[in-house]
Design a protein around this nucleic acid. Structure first.
Lengths: 235, 235
DNA sequence: AGTAAACTGTAAAGCTTGTGTAAAGGCGAT
DNA sequence: ATCGCCTTTACACAAGCTTTACAGTTTACT
């Protein structure tokens, strides 16, 4: 892979005709060559036997063969980057759990800006990881120990019971310890959707996080940056 | 400089004259330059061939070409943020189904507060992704250390508690150290609105800044340029 | 000079908006 | 149906932006 990786050819596999039409128009407009298949079976065979694709957009719910099956079969022989399109964040646990080899997922409904952001992220990742990204590291910051591999968090050696979302919020804050993290960023990276006008979601998750943390350790370790977001304090 | 982005130019596409008049008046009053087109066709061509717009307010139901068509055609070449205005109910399901391309939706009738909230949300989202977020450099001028990534300011190694607005004012002054910065500039870049007659806003923020800085370091580091603005001294 | 007008500094009141949190709602998984 | 958890709603509160007021200062003009 060269220094600059340019996306040229995209395969879209989704049974929603209206959606694939729009995607096709839009991505073509951006200069990509786009091919569309409207069910899993056709998609898979196109991906495998058709010409080379730089990226595959793959719907989860489809007739004949669902997205997970397609991905699994595809991965037997191909490493093509795959961006999964899921109906809402529900499937996220499954995606996380299965670790089938999707590069990212995008909950529907989504808008073009998100789509482009995800595509770019995948491309960036590919350019960076010739040698492949390592497994996610354990983090220890300010008495908080977080282990992605076991999905576990300990504060002063006391285990916390966190939900998946809380875990991801905390991890994001820890990865950016002592740096501001906007609500927008949290929403995008954790919930997979942009922050909306009267959206209190992130506030809630942070509130719950604080409650659980302060139950076992004194002092607020998460600082509020009013009008901006949050920040994990480093002492 | 010019990392900041502020909404300046808005295109409103809606066939309801009463509404567009109201919007026009209201948004102009907020300091935006507003252009109005009363049908889809005119709107699209203005959006494409007219000058650059920072945001488009787009009605769904319109003569000649409906909002969805406009959006789809627009998206072939432009990524301008779009806020769709929909008539309650009917369109809503449709929107949720094929949500691609719009940044947000606002059901009619709506009130000013909500409109502004949504516009702000879009702008914030847009500025973040455009500015890349965390790539702003740390600054060190005249004993003042300012770090955008942690939104923190230290003077002689003593941390200051600044509000976001104060932080931005200081940052602007530091970016233009030893150069004059007019109140107009500060108001526009920091508050996102033009300076008005008898507006003492900026004076207040500067005053508060001075108070906080001089509490930990002697001497006034901000010089007043009477009738013009302020300037950060460089020694 | 002397006076008026304009501008600035700052305290304090006023008001808007963001935030914390409890509680209800929703929705898929079990 | 029940559970878990994400999401939305509601409301009180606090932060901090904005306005007001007034005193002090500089500039303009006669």
């Amino acid at each position: 892979m060269s220094k600059e990786f340019h996306l040229q050819s995209v395969l879209v596999i989704d049974d929603d005709i209206e959606l694939t039409d729009m995607l096709s128009t839009y991505l073509s407009g951006m200069g990509y060559s786009v091919n569309v298949k409207n069910d899993g079976e056709a998609g898979l065979s196109e991906a495998i036997s058709g010409h080379h694709y730089d990226l595959i957009l793959l719907d989860v719910m489809m007739p004949k063969m669902d997205g997970f099956d397609v991905l699994q079969k595809l991965r037997a022989s191909h490493t093509t980057p795959v961006l999964m399109l899921t109906a809402r964040g529900d499937d996220y646990d499954r995606i996380l759990g299965l670790e089938l080899g999707a590069d990212d997922y995008l909950p529907k409904p989504f808008n073009h800006r998100e789509l482009v952001a995800r595509i770019k992220a995948i491309v960036r990742r590919y350019t960076l990881s010739a040698a492949g990204g390592g497994t996610e590291q354990d983090l220890l910051i300010n008495d908080i120990f977080l282990s992605p591999s076991s999905q576990q968090v300990k504060v002063n050696d006391i285990a916390l019971e966190l939900t998946t979302t809380e875990f991801m919020v905390l991890r994001l804050l820890m990865l950016n310890a002592a740096q501001r993290v906007t609500k927008e960023q949290i929403s995008l990276k954790v919930l997979g959707k942009p922050l909306q006008a009267f959206d209190r979601n992130i506030d809630m998750h942070v509130s719950n996080l604080r409650k659980k943390i302060s139950a076992v350790a004194p002092g607020d370790k998460i600082k509020t940056l009013r009008g901006v977001g949050y920040m994990l304090l480093r002492e």
